[in-house]
């Protein structure tokens, strides 16, 4: 199982309605990106972090493991802002780039934490079937749900193949590594289409008519949670804009 998905099933906000969590996390995400980074990113990022570590019950270690890779992109992508090219000398240090790079890194970090707030509290199995209510065609949500279900089976297959290859010294040299990885790719291709064909036969025997009906667990919407979310978002927007006015 993927780490974020496992947390999404085991966190304290798991029973909450996906719409509530989407409003909170995606509202914070929108604010993190749209508001001026200072102090908007600080407010949205710290709020998301507090909600993750507090009410949602996600650990700091889990958050760090999730942000490591994208953080690498953000830091690497901030470096070009610190230099200017095309002048004399051709490549020169750009002092005005430091605040831009800091703002960029701050905004991206805050947005990343908001994304994690959604990803670690809401399993896709809860949110995908409900996408039809916001206008996504049922055929598309069903394909997405099928992909979601098959991904874990194929990842398990790829892992099993990889372990077997490692046991046979399949990753000894670059040449054997490439052959081994190609073997994994071939195996998941064959298993993916084999599974689809078996699923098709199984559904046909059960009178498949074109619609994959799945039971969506009922989850009540909490008006208090929605009101608190709207209040929190309004407070963040107000404080950020007032702080900008004071700074100017």
């Amino acid at each position: 199982m993927l780490a974020l998905d496992a947390i999404a099933y085991s966190n304290r906000w798991r029973p909450r309605h996906p719409g509530e969590k989407a409003l909170l996390a995606l509202g914070l995400l929108g604010a993190a990106v749209a508001l001026p980074p200072w102090p908007g990113a600080l407010l949205t990022g710290s709020t998301a972090m507090v909600l993750l570590l507090g009410p949602a019950g996600v650990t700091l270690r889990q958050v760090w493991q999730a942000v490591r890779v994208p953080l690498g992109f953000v830091l690497t992508g901030s470096v070009p802002l610190l230099v200017a090219v095309g002048g004399s000398p051709w490549l020169a240090w750009e002092p005005s780039g430091i605040p831009r790079a800091a703002e960029l890194a701050g905004r991206a970090m805050a947005a990343l934490l908001c994304l994690l707030l959604f990803a670690t509290t809401t399993p896709l199995a809860d949110s995908l079937p409900r996408l039809t209510r916001i206008g996504v065609p049922p055929a598309i949500t069903e394909v997405a749900s099928l992909i979601y279900r098959m991904v874990f089976l194929l990842l398990d297959s790829a892992r099993a193949v990889r372990e077997a290859q490692a046991g046979r010294l399949g990753f000894r040299t670059w040449a054997t590594t490439y052959r081994a990885v190609a073997g994994q790719g071939g195996a998941i291709f064959v298993r993916a289409f084999d599974r689809a064909r078996r699923l098709e036969e199984g559904l046909a025997l059960r009178g498949y008519s074109g619609s994959l009906t799945v039971q969506v667990e009922y989850q009540a919407v909490s008006r208090r949670f929605i009101a608190a979310t709207v209040g929190l978002l309004a407070a963040i927007v107000t404080v950020t804009l007032m702080a900008r006015v004071v700074m100017v």
């Binding site: 099928l146 992909i147 790829a158 994994q184 998941i188 599974r195 689809a196 074109g210």
Partner: peptide, 26 residues
């Protein structure tokens, strides 16, 4: 999918294959 409902399952397989292919370590 409307013309051929079974293709939904193959599309699911294709999407899952693309996801897992992009997760292989090189």
């Amino acid at each position: 999918i409307r013309d051929n409902p079974e293709s939904k399952l193959l599309l699911g397989a294709a999407g899952a294959f693309c996801f897992v292919l992009s997760a292989l370590k090189l």
